[in-house]
Design a protein around this nucleic acid. Structure first.
Lengths: 182, 182
DNA sequence: TGAAGCATGTAACGTGTTACATGATTGG
DNA sequence: CCAATCATGTAACACGTTACATGCTTCA
């Protein structure tokens, strides 16, 4: 048996996050996505419905079937266990992914459900982690440069500049957040 | 029967790209990755070996088994069909992914195998496509803002700023490339 | 009446990770 | 001699997409 830090099932956590606001159907959640998270996570129905089934099986979500206007509706709601799981996910460090922005954004998107100071700490740690990644890549740079051409060198610079951009962005974001509470 | 534009099997294309440089083993390719593409694509052996098997099955790659220092070695080489497939992939538009940087970088990384002017055109088109994405998100912005809090608003701004950063970055990169050939 | 939207879901397929499994050589 | 590196691979599992499949209501 092995612990899976987070399983990468970002979709499931997004669904839990939506249910924190109130009960709704799978269809509703898809609507929510396209109007709020679509620029970083936009799951299809073929992913949403199985995810919901799993969430029920895992005991994080409750299901009530109703008939409204002749249409079958499955109203989902989050229970205590689900809330705990969601908060556990939120409280865990934001993972730096070299290539995937969505897992970080997904978490921050729901940070209103975390105590403000905890959120701040996680973002601060995230920044430090990105800085670490940037440092590693910088150290790898000379090795890569030796056999790089115009184009592959470009991708390396993009990587470094992207880390810089992220660090700067999150620092400024953090500053903004902190000012708001004073 | 449906056409799959590119199948998203970026790993397979990376492997083909390495084989453009010369023949090597799966193990070699892993080494290559960690020393050149690891900051955007770094497949595990559990992905590399099956990918190579598939590439052979698809008829893009040839395999020669040798024994060197008592160790079994499988030397892979790319054939004409493989080169065609690789070039087809390179020549296809760079897809804008909202969340995944790696697919774009993977392609640009190998642009030396494309005629210079073709590469330039693809990057120009890519920039236009990002601009389109940014425009779409900007248009969605007011809708999202209506129900956004401090944090979810942050992720929206990150999205927009990331598009801006990318556009600016690629424009400057393009300028640099063009200067080099004059 | 017919299209769009509401509402659900499955099946095939692709592709990735981690853990497991094996075994040789090389260098300290 | 033992660890690291070279070298291969499989199996279980997770997760996602697309296409397919169904059927009701609402509105032009």
């Amino acid at each position: 048996m092995h612990i899976k830090e987070w399983g990468n099932g970002v979709t499931e956590y997004i669904l839990l996050g939506f249910l924190m606001q109130g009960n709704m159907t799978g269809y509703d959640m898809k609507q929510h996505m396209s109007m709020s998270t679509s620029y970083f996570v936009d799951a299809s129905f073929g992913s949403i419905y199985p995810s919901l089934k799993r969430l029920v099986q895992k005991g994080f979500v409750e299901l009530k079937e109703t008939i409204e206007n002749g249409k079958l509706k499955k109203i989902y709601s989050i229970n205590e266990q689900g809330k705990e799981e969601f908060e556990k996910w939120l409280s865990a460090p934001i993972l730096v992914s070299k290539t995937d922005i969505s897992s970080a954004l997904a978490k921050i998107f729901f940070f209103r459900y975390l105590p403000f100071d905890k959120a701040i700490l996680l973002i601060e740690r995230y920044i430090r982690d990105i800085e670490q990644y940037k440092k590693s890549l910088s150290e790898l740079k000379p090795k890569i440069e030796k056999k790089a051409d115009e184009f592959s060198l470009g991708t390396l610079h993009f990587g470094l500049d992207y880390y810089d951009f992220s660090i700067r962005w999150y620092k400024s974001y953090l500053k903004n957040l902190k000012q708001k509470i004073q």
